[in-house]
Amino acid sequence: MTGTLLLRDRVALITGGGSGLGLGMATAMAHHGAVVVLACRRPETGEPAAAAIRDAGYDARCVQCDVTSAEDLEAAVASTVTTHGRLDCLVHNAVASPGPPSLVEEVDHDRWDALVATSLRAVFDGARAAYPHLRATGGSMVVMTSASGIEGSASLPGYAMVKAAQRTLAKGLAVEWGPDGIRVNCIAPLGLTDALSAACRANPVLEERLVRRTPLGRLGDPIEDVGSAAVFLASDLARYVTGQTLVVDGGGFLGL
């Protein structure tokens, strides 16, 4: 990644930042000059991830944070601001596993509660914790959603519900926070994470199907493709973009 540093001296907090798309976005943001704080439920994953970013010459650290705990989110925000003096971007990326496919009338209660806790309550708690700091910097929030929320899912209806709700929650926040100069946007990604790679290895037909429905003919890279979208939305290039969903999936979903 070369060129202008779009996030020089900015500070970003990324939930679920220790692996997958969260780590991809954190890495891309660090490449663009941001100090990145990886909020991770499991420090044993987050610490090596932060160390890898530092080893590449950038500024990163890990804070332990279970996003289902409002106290953990408040502490992660407070730690970020105390240590780095500011918060410019909160990326909400953490999500519970959607679990196996299910019928709508058989959405598992515990699975549903976990999805709501990680995808909606955590956005609510994180937004409240970050608000005064984002207002101080004229910062932004990025929420990771999914095109399945827009399409509706025949296989993962509960997951699609919370992802749909996230989009409209982001729009509401964009309206409420616009006068404070805070922008709120979503990314609906298709990224080749370690988890998706493993799923594709277990089911080779899956990757073929995903690629076949993707006009660009490949799955997105967590850093170069999805991470770049996060950099854009967090940067001044997107200073007049709020309440929007950026679908970063190689053209697979065209229904917006």
Binding site: L120, G149, I150, G152, K163, A164, A165, T168, L169
Partner: peptide, 13 residues
């Protein structure tokens, strides 16, 4: 509003 959008997705699924 978010809940209403979630319910719209439920209807689609």
């Amino acid at each position: 509003a978010a809940a209403a959008e979630g319910i719209r997705s439920l209807a689609k699924g």
